[in-house]
Design a protein around this nucleic acid. Structure first.
Lengths: 328, 328
DNA sequence: CTGAAAGCGCTTACAG
DNA sequence: CTGAAAGCGCTTACAG
């Protein structure tokens, strides 16, 4: 592979002059520039960017940590981040944690070993002091995943308000027996769940613990929920169900259709995310739209501003929108 | 940030001994190793991987070029590639071409400027000699996207056989008037299309050009196809439709349900890909399953073997499987 | 088992 | 407008 030295020898100029031509610096004669550029093309020379990084200290790469790229929510988020990063001359490295905390640590190490300029954490397995410190240094921006227990600065949606509004809508439609499907374990402090409970309380509805379905997050999980509901005595069954994600809601809907449960007459379904699938289904899914694109773009802008030494906002709360369609 | 020199000064050892300890080389006393490791931890020292790359010549990063990460097909492909790459100590950089040929060139430049060790092209905008040469050098592996005109080595599915089998199945079910939706422009040499035609010919069915729908690839496109069909005189309408992707098939199905067209009685639908959505829909979609995982893993194995100087197979053709469900 | 010197391919700071 | 020297943070090759 040709190096800058080869180009220097071939053209007769010093490596410094070659360097100036590569970087479009002033103080090179037009003649020198032309000769050098032509020679570089002839030799199929490309500056070794590793060597450039060594001096410039920037890799122009940022990492994005998500749980699963096959989850459309994250695919759209990565899309938004990549678009904005590219605009600013950065490339995106994707890291999937796949629910293994030790993976997250690997990515932090890549940051510390300078393979990456910065990191967007769209999914945090474990919060710790190291992450907090990296945020302070402006090398890490958190988005999307919001622990109710330790508030980190970052870009999030107003989870509490989102479910509060969604459930209030259901109640106003006349539903009173409303079930809740959580993606993970039961956690009373969870912001979505507390918004859910808050809405019920506002209408003096008490929550029945048997209406809480834990650890459901995919299509199969949704189908299981319907089977669980069918095992309840008919008079005890919920009239509506809030599901923490559209995939889950899709599973609920498909199993309802299979089992002959009418939607929304027998069971209303409220999704979350507004993934494309929600408009393909019949009936079309009522769901909470997350501003994925905005979230991705803002996180990227904040990270890049930080990397450039600017001081952007620390904490951003985005609004969601209720997309009322046919399952409620 | 601490460097190897700082660790050397603090421990009293030379930088070479520190280097040995970092890389677990022999010829370091256990005592020295222990002291050095402890000091590195204390100083929060991480070897600068850019400097390491400078000497080692490998970045341990590979790029994956796709068209859109929001297309579930590519999301699953990237997932398979990342998994296999990680196993071998490589990280994955995702590049979306978004149908712009000039983007593809950017990624090739990153390869030539040594930011990347290798590249998997899962979507080619433009084939050219440069790509062919990089394949020969073992730095590029092509998969998925197969131009019928210039055969590149790589990992592909047997497109021709896949549609031949799918259409033969439809014909055996009694369908004779079968429409074809292509993702791009009409191309008689397209391998899927020629498999389609071959199946019709085997049963002496002539293809009606008005049954060819061009440039349809998303949900909206599918919906449009149904509206186009409804404008045909009822006796001329196709009985079945082959669609080049499940998203497209989803759009066709959803519009059928909206318009009161019974599936499969009035119109049978055959998808392609076997994306998760095909099992969520009601009725469930009959479709051609692509071995995405296998394709991603094989491409990655071939690339890494090449990078390690081994000589793996050049051309692999994978089999698809017809998933018969409820829309045919 | 340990280290001083040279070098990877560039850029920064200085000199002319 | 041009260039020789020093250095980025490591590793390779050599010496002890």
């Amino acid at each position: 592979m040709a190096t800058i030295k080869d180009v220097a020898e071939r053209t007769g100029y010093s490596i410094k002059t070659i360097s100036r031509a590569i970087n479009d610096e002033p103080n090179v004669s037009q003649k020198a520039k032309t000769i050098i550029q032509e020679t570089m093309r002839e030799m199929d020379y490309y500056p070794n960017s590793v060597a450039q990084q060594m001096r410039g200290k920037a890799t122009k790469m940022i990492g994005v940590v998500i749980s699963y790229i096959t989850n459309p929510f994250f695919a759209y988020l990565v899309d938004a981040i990549e678009e904005k990063a590219n605009e600013n001359g950065y490339q995106v490295v994707v890291f999937q944690t796949k629910d293994k905390p030790k993976n997250q640590m690997r990515f932090l190490e890549m940051l510390k070993s300078k393979q990456l300029d910065g990191l967007i954490l769209a999914y945090i397995e474990e919060e710790n002091d190291e992450i907090k410190q990296l945020i302070k240094l402006g090398k890490v921006v958190v988005c999307n995943h919001h622990s109710p227990h330790s508030k980190l600065p970052g870009v999030f949606i107003d989870e509490n308000k989102a479910t509060y509004d969604a459930i209030t809508f259901l109640i106003k439609q006349g539903y009173r027996k409303i079930a809740y499907c959580s993606g993970g374990k039961y956690d009373p402090d969870n912001l979505r769940f507390s918004g859910f409970i808050k809405a019920l309380k506002a209408y003096h509805i008490t929550f029945d613990d048997s209406y809480h379905f834990e650890n459901k997050w995919d299509v199969l999980g949704g189908q299981q929920v319907v089977r669980d509901i069918l095992e309840m005595p008919e008079s005890d069954r919920p009239q509506a169900i809030f599901s923490n994600g559209d995939l889950l809601a899709s599973g609920i809907l498909s199993e309802c259709l299979t089992q002959g449960i009418k939607v929304p007459e027998d069971l209303a379904i409220m999704g979350f995310d507004d993934q494309p699938v929600s408009q393909i289904l019949t009936p079309k899914l009522t769901t909470v739209q997350q501003p994925i694109k905005q979230m991705g773009e803002l996180s990227t802008e904040i990270l890049i501003a930080n990397l450039h030494g600017e001081t952007p906002p620390e904490y951003v709360l985005l609004d969601t929108e209720l997309m009322i369609r046919e399952t409620t």
